[in-house]
């Protein structure tokens, strides 16, 4: 047994990445913020094992994963609900789990939702890049997605955690409701585009990923041709590329973009977006519609 605790990846699953709170504050250098998509799940997993909120966890995607710690370690699985086992024996989801040295902690496929977070006491201690251990799938910063046989260092655990509250299983919403504040570029769209966004049926696209929640539904018609000069974008921005289909920017979104942003999703709604499977109906609740009714139907400048 080596002195430094590590995790060996037994089965990486379809896509498992290291995530923490990301790299906010570097957008002016072209660096995406990245970080856990389901932030409450990341924070809860860390709390269950007594970690600092900034400790790195593993984020799985739909298909689970399996890892083997070199030393005994306390772990906790949150986010999407899934079967948890230690050397084949069922273990609780959403609670601290003691994993003996050399035992395999396995997560089954997500029973509902998309992404599980797995925290280990002491945190996943890969080398930080620009202050974060997060894997950024857009720019390639941070560690690569987990691969079979890879070894990840673990940090030294802190004092044991305070007993946690009972954790309810998350019921992923039958319909993903996203509150949207119009702008900054709603005036680039044809009259009625915001009304279409607010009333039409959209579903989560199979192409949704950590960069953006792509959706399928009626295209939003533009009132202006061409591209905007590149401008800064925010987490939750609803960007509309030339195909007219809204994309909600998630953690790995590009920091600048040239397609118009029709509105911005309230940040607390993005955790649910991270757990919405392809095919999930999406309802965009356009806020301030009454106040900005004039804007919704505002005639675009003729051109």
């Amino acid at each position: 047994m080596s002195a430094r605790p590590t995790l060996t990846v037994v089965a990486p699953g379809p896509l498992t990445t290291v995530q923490d709170l990301g790299r906010p504050g570097l957008a002016h250098l072209g660096v995406p913020r990245s970080g856990a998509l389901d932030r409450p799940a990341h924070l809860l997993a860390n709390r269950l094992v007594g970690n600092d909120p900034s400790a790195a966890t593993l984020e799985t995607t739909l298909g689970g994963c399996a890892v083997r710690p070199s030393h005994p370690v306390t772990a906790a699985v949150t986010g999407a609900f899934c079967a948890v086992t230690v050397d084949g024996t069922p273990a609780p989801w959403g609670a601290p789990v003691r994993v003996p040295a050399g035992a395999v902690l396995a997560l089954g496929p997500a029973g509902s939702g998309v992404r599980c977070h797995v925290a280990f006491a002491g945190g996943v201690a890969v080398a930080p890049v620009l202050g974060s251990r997060a894997t950024d799938l857009l720019s390639g910063l941070g560690p690569p997605p987990l691969a079979e046989g890879a070894e990840l260092p673990l940090g030294a655990p802190g004092p044991p955690p305070a007993p946690a509250d009972a954790i309810p299983h998350p019921a992923p919403p039958a319909t993903l409701v996203l509150r949207v504040r119009p702008g900054p570029r709603d005036d680039w769209f044809a009259p009625g585009a915001l009304a279409t966004l607010a009333s039409a049926r959209y579903v989560v696209s199979p192409a949704a990923n950590r960069i953006g929640l792509r959706t399928e539904g009626p295209p939003l018609a533009r009132a202006r041709d061409g591209e905007l000069p590149s401008e800064g974008t925010v987490l939750g921005a609803v960007q509309v590329p030339p195909d007219g289909l809204p994309v909600v920017f998630l953690a790995d979104h590009p920091p600048t973009g040239g397609y118009p942003v029709i509105g911005v999703v309230a940040e607390p709604d993005l955790a649910a977006a991270a757990q919405a499977r392809p095919g999930t109906p999406v309802r965009f609740l356009v806020r301030g519609g009454a106040m900005r009714g004039g804007a919704i139907h505002r005639a675009a400048p003729g051109r």
Binding site: G25, L26, S230, E231, G232
Partner: peptide, 10 residues
């Protein structure tokens, strides 16, 4: 974040 771009600052 303070993000300058072509004709904007976010």
């Amino acid at each position: 974040d303070i993000v300058p771009a072509a004709r904007t600052v976010l």
